[in-house]
Structures are given as structure tokens and as C-alpha cells.
């Protein structure tokens, strides 16, 4: 199966909900799908087109939306980057950890750093940040500046100081 056929079969299956598809260069396919069908699209890719390897999930802050890019690989050669996006005010999307087992870790990473909630995730908890990290500070969002993160970290330090002073 080559790059063109992958896009064609995706379009045949999901019609209008697949857009902005492009082949950037050999073995690199980019395609955008609606957030509502991301689970269906990925399980179709895995089940019918043989994309059995999820390389990673990239989370990306683009102004009022958060983009999610699922990088999946078929037989380790063609890389399809399937994009979708969710609203920043209500970042929610279905978890794909039942389709790709490793997605569990990648989703926790995105949850940790961008605050996207993955629904029906078996264990959506912190993976990377410390347990006492503030709930609403997502370091990889654009509004979180380096200064802000630094000041939050030093606030944490003060917190510790207070704790041992009393």
C-alpha cells in the first residue's frame, strides 16, 4: 500500500470528515480528521490498513485550540501523522489506549503538559510533573511563559519552607 492509497481509503471510509491531507515527501503523510472520529479512524488504520505501531502523540498549542498529532507507522515505513484538535476551553477527547496500548503513557504525557483530558483513560494521572504541581499550569501551553513556570517553581519552594517552619 502506498501513500496515495492510504489517503484514498481513508477518504472513502470517512468522507468529509477527513481533510487537509498531503504527502510531504515519500513515507510522510499528514492528514487531518474531526475530533469526533479520531477513535474510529485510528482503529480503522490499525485494523484494516496495518498501522500497528504508534510512535507518539504530539500535543501542540495553536491559539484557541490544542492540536493533537498521532504519529502512526505501518510496518515501520510509512509514517501517517493524523491530526485533530480540541477547544482549549474544554480540552476533551476519547482515549485510544484500548487501540494502542502504549498510548496510555503518551496520553498521560499530553495530559500532564497540555491539560487535555482523555476520556475513559484507565489511569489519567501525572506522569512527568511532580505530584504537587498546580492543576492549572500546563507548561507546554503558550500562555505558560518561562518566567511563570520559574515563579511557580519558586512558590513551591516557599511552600516547602513554610511547611518546615511551622
Amino acid at each position: 500500500m502506498n501513500e496515495d492509497e492510504i489517503i484514498t481509503s481513508l477518504k472513502n471510509r470517512f468522507g468529509e470528515r477527513v481533510h487537509n491531507s498531503k504527502i510531504a515527501k515519500p513515507r510522510r503523510v499528514y492528514v487531518e480528521v474531526d475530533a469526533s472520529i479520531i477513535r474510529e479512524a485510528l482503529s480503522y488504520m490499525r485494523g484494516s490498513l496495518g498501522f500497528d505501531h504508534l510512535s507518539t502523540i504530539t500535543g501542540l498549542d495553536s491559539e484557541e485550540r490544542i492540536e493533537l498529532i498521532y504519529h502512526i507507522v505501518c510496518g515501520n515505513s510509512i509514517v501517517v501523522s493524523m491530526k485533530t484538535n480540541v477547544l482549549k476551553t474544554n480540552p476533551k477527547i476519547g482515549s485510544i489506549s484500548d487501540i494502542y496500548v502504549t498510548a496510555e503513557l503518551y496520553e498521560r504525557e499530553v495530559y500532564d503538559l497540555l491539560g487535555v483530558r482523555f476520556e475513559e483513560h484507565p489511569n489519567l494521572s501525572r506522569l512527568i510533573l511532580p505530584e504537587d504541581w498546580p492543576e492549572n499550569l500546563h507548561p507546554l501551553r503558550k500562555e505558560a511563559t518561562l518566567e511563570q513556570i520559574k515563579s511557580r517553581l519558586s512558590m513551591n519552594g516557599d511552600g516547602i519552607n513554610e511547611r518546615f517552619n511551622d
Partner: peptide, 25 residues
Amino acid sequence: MDRMQIIDCEKKEKQSWTLDDLRRY
């Protein structure tokens, strides 16, 4: 594997935490 978050509190800690503080804590 770990590479994402800024851990830059080192300076702050160095200012306010001596070894004795740490031990007491």
C-alpha cells in the same frame, strides 16, 4: 525519556536551604 519540564528552582533552593535546613526538613 524525561526532558520536558523546567527544573530551575536550584538557585532558589541554594539561597534559602542550607544542608542543616535540609536535614531538619
